[in-house]
Amino acid sequence: MSAAHGLVPEAPAAPLRPLPPRRVPLWRKIVGGVVGIALVSAAVYAQTFVLTADEKSDPLTVSGGMHDELRTSHFSARLERVEFARTVRVKKQYSTDDAKADETFMIVKVGLTAPRRPTQVTSFVLTADGLRFEPTDRVSLSATLGDKWIQPGWWRSGLFFFDVPADKLAGARVVVAEPKTLFGDDYMPETSFDLGFDRPKARQMAGAAKDVYEVSG
């Protein structure tokens, strides 16, 4: 490397030519600020999508109406019939139990099958204002679908009995789900059926309730 190199002021070129001060036009500053604020706001807003601890244990719900076949990964369900009765008579092998409702029993017939493995389900009524009514214990479990096994290959129909005041049935839903285990699994499937009741219809249906509904169990 030689005089030639020394002569050619190639390296000092950078230092010698001072960088022109970077002039950012005002509009770009403003746009950048706005975009930055928008991004920050979006990030903060995205935090509202984070599930709370309570929501994390919520089930995955498949919704539908009467007679819809709702499929989940653990079971498929359809709501076949809804009836009302004041008394449910459970005929057992050696005895008969009469169960009287406070007002009326809502009797829900559900058909179920399982895609892969045998399973058991339970049900509850979710009213429009979020109240959750478990199946009544006045009617013994053996008369309901609650203690039956659902198996692959065929549909099994059965009943659930609810003691819900008729004025709470407007907008109510019937939910069929696997019972919660002690150390609940996450993302358990459930199916939710809209009964399609408004206030007059619920009242009319409950008013036309049967006196006695007989069931074996």
Binding site: K100, D102, L131, R132, F133, E134, T136, D137, R138, D163, V164, P165, K168
Partner: peptide, 14 residues
């Protein structure tokens, strides 16, 4: 207690 029988549930709002 209801109707001379004893049960175990208290339903919401009832």
């Amino acid at each position: 207690v209801s109707g001379g029988h004893s049960y175990g549930q208290m339903h919401p709002g009832v």
